[in-house]
Design a binder for these strands. Structure first.
Length: 524
RNA sequence: GCGGGUGUAGCUCAGUGGUAGAGCGUCAGCCUUCCAAGCUGAAUGUCGAGGGUUCAAAUCCCUUCGCCCGCUCCA
């Protein structure tokens, strides 16, 4: 999450109510709490009929624009069409995968809590001021964490107590608990012993329960790509540069799941690992970063709620030459932003790690590089490709689409509606007879059959003749259906219907034979 | 994990120890020629869960779970 840039204009739209959005999601069947009839379980959510279709449409859009027709046919920085292939890998991988990736270490950080300040600190981040020489004896020692006000404060106190001091890690002191003053505390003995917070879920494959066989549910889909890199190269005739895309569920045992589906313990990712020569990697990084921003805009997040945030140098991993986040201003992060997708230049870190850990050669032989030989071919070059990783959260994307689309306009007869982009809207169109008599239902059903046959594979097409026309429009507005076609008295004489635009409420009249063409154009 | 708030129908919420409620939504019928209209009717709840106090608990007490806010965490 990041703060709003100082330059953001004050023209901030009225803050949307997250409660109202969550109520609508429940009411219209977008998102439910999982196992709700048993009281729910923290950090897990189910998608209702409309939500499931919305998320599928989002996933399909990603698949279409990242794998089947990457970047809408845009040429990459090398002047060629971008090439990508899909992959589908397991949630449970060999445990060594997560050792190589660093997750087993990084995800199992011991933490200490402070009973006085209520703070929690990473055990290995806590430093302690002790006398420069000798023992502190019965006197308390002063803990602090770097880059925080606690350091200066504790230093002053420690110098007053001991005179000359030095700094050591908390973990280097045996049994310190009774005499340590926490970073933000006044009294000694308030820190708890370190406790493990397992951020990876584990399980034990095999019928016989044996801890030695422990395996993890993946915390990201990316590693499945890296460990299959050699397989894809060996079996599919791909040539660098190319990408491997992968969507699927990942699991993180978040300390505090929060903010509706934004931070869930089970979530779905859509990740592309794009491999290229090190010399071209920065260009590709910029290319993907810009395309991913354009993509989110194109499916409905246009506007100032969406920003691209380039990480500062000191935020970057040691192997990265650049990372950007596509961030959206959710109602619960405003005026700050929450991450939708990270685009990371990962260097050759992952492949190198797996090469070292698995002792399998993951270098790539690039036959189009190296010196020119007399016969016209090239000598070739061995290298570990660099990787650019655009990694999107589909649940966060779906939530952003809902938040962005949620609109409240008191001047409308149906004040709440969802402005979903037609491409992702779960209901694509609805057909209504104005009244259920005079032959209108029959004409409407015929039109419905036609639209269902042509567009039913993209999403739901609705037909409804019950109740007043206003109520039917209102229902479609809340469900985010972009277009309603209404058969009225005039239809029976001149073969035209009205098409109502969800966002403006305006209607225009088009020939009943033009409806399919109209929808084709609008749905893309 | 800590602190605060909260939990009653699908949604929003009334209900401070004595028969479980309203509005909206949903469904059905009537009506209706363009925006949640009207009329009639219907369905829907172990009052988050478990335990306790009481003749009697949605209401008081304890435990627990979920959600919201603030810390913390976010490789």
């Amino acid at each position: 999450m990041s703060e709003a840039p100082a330059s953001t204009p004050s023209a901030q739209p009225a803050k949307k109510s997250m409660d109202a959005i969550m109520a609508l999601c429940k009411r219209r069947g977008f998102i439910y709490q999982t196992s709700e009839i048993y009281g729910g379980i923290n950090g897990f959510w189910d998608y209702g009929p409309l939500g499931a279709q919305l998320k599928k449409n989002l996933r399909d859009a990603w698949w279409q624009d990242m794998i089947l027709n990457p970047c809408w046919g845009r040429k990459g920085p090398n002047g060629n069409r971008v090439r990508c292939v899909p992959l589908e890998t397991c949630i449970i991988q060999h445990p060594k995968v997560w050792e190589a990736s660093g997750h087993v270490g990084g995800f199992n950080d011991p933490m200490v809590d402070c009973k006085e300040s209520k703070g929690r600190y990473r055990y290995d981040h806590v430093q302690v001021f002790v006398p420069e020489s000798g023992d502190a004896g019965d006197k308390p020692v002063f803990a602090y964490v770097g880059d925080q006000p606690s350091e200066a404060k504790q230093r002053k106190k420690a110098e007053k107590t001991f005179g000359a001091i030095k700094s050591v890690t908390l973990s280097s002191i045996p049994q310190p608990w009774a005499r340590v003053i926490g970073p933000d505390a006044e009294k000694p003995g308030t820190l708890t012993e370190p406790r493990m917070f397992n951020l990876m879920f584990d399980t034990i494959p095999g019928a016989i329960r044996d801890e030695a066989n422990k395996a993890y549910l993946r915390p990201e889909t990316a590693q499945g790509v890296f460990v299959n890199f050699k397989n894809v190269v060996d079996t599919t005739r791909v040539k660098l540069p190319f990408g491997i895309g992968n969507t699927g569920r990942s699991f993180r045992n978040e300390v505090t799941p929060r903010n509706f589906t934004f931070r869930s313990r089970e979530f779905e990712q859509a990740e592309l690992e794009f491999f290229c020569h090190p010399d071209e990697s920065v260009e590709w990084y910029k290319f993907w970063r810009d395309f991913r921003m354009d993509w989110w805009k194109a499916i409905g997040l246009a506007g100032e709620n969406l920003i691209l945030r380039e990480h500062d140098k000191d935020e970057l991993s040691h192997y990265s030459q650049g990372t950007s986040d596509v961030e959206y201003r959710f109602p619960f992060t405003a005026p700050g932003y929450g991450e939708l997708e990270g685009i990371a230049h990962r260097g050759n870190y992952d492949l190198t790690q797996h090469e070292n850990t698995s002792r399998t050669k993951l270098k790539y032989f690039d036959a189009e590089r190296g010196e020119l030989l007399p016969n016209g071919s090239r000598k070739g070059e061995w290298y570990i490709p660099h990787c650019i990783e655009p990694a999107a959260g589909l649940d966060r994307g779906a939530l952003a689409l809902i938040c962005e689309g949620y609109t409240r306009d008191e001047s409308r007869p149906s004040p709440e509606f969802l402005k979903l982009h037609p491409r992702v809207a779960p209901i694509k169109a609805a057909v209504f007879p104005l009244v259920a008599k005079d032959g209108m239902p029959e004409v409407g059903e015929k039109l419905y059959d036609e639209l269902f046959a042509k567009f039913g594979r993209m999403g739901f097409i609705e037909f409804d003749e019950k109740q007043s026309i206003g109520k039917r429009y209102a229902r479609m507005d809340e469900a985010g259906c972009p277009f309603c076609f209404t058969v009225d008295g005039d239809t029976l004489t001149n073969q035209t219907v009205t098409v109502r635009d969800r966002d403006s409420g305006q209607q225009e009249r088009i020939g009943i034979d033009k409806v399919s063409g109209f929808l084709s154009e609008k749905l893309g």
